[in-house]
Computed example of a mutant assay.
Amino acid sequence: MAQQNVSRLANKVAVITASTDGIGFAIAQRLAAEGAKVVVSSRKPQNVEKAVNQLKSDGHSDVLGVKCHVSDANDRKKLFDETIKKFGKIDILVSNAAVNPTVGSVLDCSEEAWDKIFDVNVKASFLLAKEVTPLLRKQSSGSIIFMSSYAGLNPFPLLGAYSVSKTALFGLTKALSQDLASENITVNCVAPGIIKTKFSSAMYETEVARETALSMIPMRKLGEVEDISGIVAFLASNDGAYITGETIVASGGMPSRL
Rank of each mutant, 00 (worst) to 15 (best):
D91Q: 06
P218Y: 05
T102R: 14
K85C: 10
V94Y: 01
V70A: 07
V232E: 03
R76P: 02
I228E: 03
K37M: 12
E34A: 10
A236T: 08
E112K: 15
I27N: 00
K123Q: 07
R43P: 00
F126Q: 14
Q139N: 14
Q4D: 12
G252P: 00
V70P: 02
P218L: 06
D91A: 03
I90H: 00
T173M: 06
G22R: 04
D72M: 05
F25T: 00
V120K: 06
T197L: 01
K12M: 05
A98T: 04
V15A: 01
G160S: 06
D91W: 06
K198D: 14
E34G: 02
I23L: 07
S163Q: 03
S110T: 12
K56E: 02
V190R: 00
S143T: 10
A241Y: 12
N74A: 13
S251Q: 09
A98R: 04
A151C: 13
D179C: 12
K138P: 01
G35Q: 07
R43S: 07
K12W: 04
D75M: 09
D75P: 03
F87T: 00
L135G: 03
I248M: 06
K196A: 04
D179V: 13
M254F: 08
L64M: 02
S237N: 10
N5R: 14
L159V: 09
A97Q: 04
G230H: 09
K44I: 09
V39H: 00
A32C: 04
S57M: 07
A191L: 06
T102V: 15
S57Q: 15
T247H: 09
S148L: 05
L128I: 10
S182Y: 13
L135D: 01
V122C: 08
Q178F: 09
S256C: 13
G223H: 03
E246R: 15
L258A: 10
Q4I: 08
V70I: 13
T173P: 02
N53G: 13
V40Q: 00
N154S: 14
